[in-house]
Design a binder for these strands. Structure first.
Lengths: 214, 214
DNA sequence: GATATTCTACCTACATGACGGTAGATAACT
DNA sequence: AGTTATCTACCGTCATGTAGGTAGAATATC
């Protein structure tokens, strides 16, 4: 079979091309969304012809799935690594939010892809990994530990995800969204640390008992 | 010219069809996004043939623009009406957030369309109305009044928009996003009032001086 | 160590199908 | 009768996927 999915790349050159395709397509999918994205654009960005993409990925959908899966995996790993360094509940929550924020700021294409994903009414049948599910499990773990420790009031992880984590996505996506005058660079250290401070404040307000906020 | 844009509908029947087309297309655009949306779907939902849509709207893009413009206008009006009933700064801020939340809960298609819009990297050239700009102006007014009154600390309206208003969008969009077990109905009164309470708490944390939170 | 063979990494060219838009006929009001 | 509303039929475009070919690298063979 000519188009067998190659589980493992065989040659360094092929590896590099494959990686370039993934990166270029992440950009294109982020910019235009799945439906409007054209493989032609991806090919052009990589510097190859469109059919060569098919040499590496069976089709557009599979390419997209690969991009999405990579985003989720990277993000989850990133979060885990940051969270396990913290031990008290509030430190863990801060670490979790910081991890999300930093990941998205460093990979704004991922932010925009997730943003689009959340707009979809229902999960796509064959798509195994769902953002909100993964993210929700991560935050549920952190929250429930805080609640058990008596540090957090009992609060729906779902609501925290919506109220607080959504903010990080917005912060990244909205940077170039406003008119010339109001545009900002999400990666700008001053801007970022200001927003991070707000995020922490919001998180504390969300989980702490009303009488023990600092 | 056969396809002249009709500024005013001439007959009641035409008016009704036109309205049906707008409503159906809002649904379709929300479900699939602009690129993936097919006029065929819209026509089918309305119960007419596809070319009849062109009788009312010059083309797909113009139809979409109309839907978007209507959403922004409705939302802005909705917000204004709610905010002007409040007079002290915090009441105004709460009214603003409640208005956003209630509007989006009542019109989830709008929420998903806005969600998609924010994923776009940059404003489309010919698109006159930008969500974040309109919303930002609304919130800027409220915030700056609070700051001038000395009730709010000086805080970037942009950050409030990201951190707090984004939450309302997420709340609505994420309802059907999770697996069977975790799905929720954003319009459910219990769920909604719990989230509303959180939103208020977050807003207060964001704008009040650290020492005067209730 | 030169030659034959196989494989990798692309390419060109084409078939297919989907969707938006257009033209013109027709039905339904008033 | 004349306008308003909707239909059928058709066309053009465009993006995907497929078929098959080719240069050059890697590997085997003598």
């Amino acid at each position: 079979m000519a188009n067998a999915v190659r589980q493992v790349a065989r040659q360094p050159r092929g590896d590099a091309t494959r990686q370039s395709i993934l990166e270029a397509s992440e950009q294109v999918f982020a910019d235009l969304g799945y439906a409007a994205a054209r493989l032609e654009d991806v090919a052009q960005a990589v510097g190859i012809r469109r059919p060569s993409i098919v040499y590496y990925f069976p089709g557009k959908q599979q390419l997209y799935d690969q991009v999405e899966a990579d985003i989720f995996a990277s993000m989850h790993d990133f979060v885990l690594k940051r969270v396990e360094d913290a031990d008290d509940p509030m430190a863990r929550l801060h670490a979790l939010l910081d991890a999300w924020l930093d990941f998205l700021v460093g990979r704004p294409t991922a932010a925009r892809i997730i943003q689009r994903l959340i707009a979809d009414s229902a999960p796509r049948g064959d798509n195994p990994v769902r953002f909100s599910e993964t993210a929700l499990r991560d935050i549920e773990t952190v929250i429930s530990m805080g609640v058990e420790a008596g540090v957090f009031r009992p609060v729906s992880a779902m609501h925290i995800l919506n109220g607080v984590a959504g903010g990080a996505l917005f912060y990244v996506c909205n940077g170039g969204q406003l008119g010339e005058a109001r545009s900002y660079d999400a990666a700008n250290p001053t801007e970022l640390s200001a927003f991070r401070a707000l995020l922490h404040k919001l998180a504390e307000a969300a989980v702490l008992q009303s009488d023990e906020r600092k």
